Amino acid sequence: MAVIENSDSIGPGGDFRLSEASAKDFLALLKPRVMSLVVFTALTGLILAPGTINPVLGAIAILCIAVGAGASGALNMWYDADIDAVMTRTACRPIPAGRIRPQEALAFGVTLSAFSVVILGLVVNWMAAAFLAFTIFFYAVVYTMWLKRSTPQNIVIGGASGAFPPMIGWACVTGDVSWNSLILFLIIFLWTPAHFWALALFKMGDYGAVGVPMMPNVAGERSTKRQMFVYAVLTGLAAVAPALTGLSSWAYGLVAGVLSLVFIGYSIAVLKMPEGDKRMAAAKRMFAYSILYLFVVFAALLADHYLMVV
């Protein structure tokens, strides 16, 4: 908090000199780990979509989606700098740590947002560009500025922004959406609450300190654990759905089914975790597995697609 308050860049008439931030600091604003998952799921949607796209245009499309995702992250960090300074998980981010001034992050995010949307529209198609623009708006405004601090359903509704990339990739090829692209969306959308609430369980103190109404802080541990189990089951059903619609083979369906049973098993372990458990070991294991789970599910979709083509 102090580093932000001491910055002479805040408020009208402030000092607008540039900070001495490094390229690494601006890269951190883009949330590269989150961006990598966005890029991978968007690439999956682009490859699984019916039809073809010129490889160069496809590469530009993925680059634009990556830049748009990074822009969303920068805008999120700009707006959340006050609470990031308090939370142990985020206190070292570039803005609360004083390495980047807030207005620099805002300008960076807005510039990248406009660049990614315009280039995607001009080079690929405007349907995909509009979808990307909506995704950036949904994450930066609807989730970050409104839902995150106002409702315990923040991550449920706001999680849609992280689930749109495969639909954008799909739209880059087809110029529209379909039931199969919606299934890709649902896998991520239904996965997000179980994934993020696992984190929220062992970071309850941080969220409580900044007044963010995460589900464990508002509804309690027991209710959150039950909901995580329900979402894990729903995620598993969505993950095997491509085998039912013809988007993938039954070989993929079997792999997704096994992965999902393990995911559900982790949610059961969390459900059995004693109230007030300080170690939160089961929640930490589920959080770690959930990241691997989503990556492997989408990797299996890609592998299955190429095997079907061959």
Rank of each mutant, 00 (worst) to 15 (best):
P50E: 10
V296I: 15
L292K: 13
F134H: 06
G162C: 11
Y143D: 10
N76I: 05
S113V: 06
L190K: 00
A69W: 00
M1Q: 11
Y143F: 13
L43K: 01
G208Q: 11
V310C: 07
L120S: 03
S223T: 15
E20R: 14
L294D: 02
A74F: 07
A200I: 07
V310T: 13
A160R: 05
A105T: 03
I291A: 15
A71C: 12
I4T: 11
M228T: 06
A129S: 13
A49W: 00
A251L: 13
G208P: 05
G169P: 02
Q103T: 12
D277M: 09
E275T: 10
S150E: 09
R226A: 12
H305Q: 13
V173W: 00
A198I: 05
A171V: 07
L190C: 05
I65D: 01
F115L: 15
Q227W: 09
L57R: 08
G109K: 03
D84K: 05
G45Q: 05
F40G: 01
T151C: 08
R93Q: 09
A114Y: 06
L307F: 15
T235Y: 01
L294P: 00
Y231R: 02
L43N: 02
G159A: 10
L294R: 00
A91T: 15
L186T: 07
G121K: 04
V34L: 12
G51S: 10
G276V: 08
C92V: 13
V297Q: 02
L46M: 14
L259T: 01
V117T: 07
F40K: 04
A232C: 10
P32D: 12
A140W: 02
W78F: 15
I187H: 01
A97V: 08
A61K: 00
V230W: 12
V173I: 09
A281R: 14
Y306D: 06
C64Y: 01
S178F: 06
I100L: 08
Y207W: 12
R33W: 12
A163L: 08
V240G: 01
W179G: 15
M145W: 10
D84W: 05
G265R: 06
P12T: 07
A97D: 15
L132T: 03
S22F: 04
A251E: 09
R279D: 15
A2C: 07
V177M: 15
T224C: 06
V56M: 11
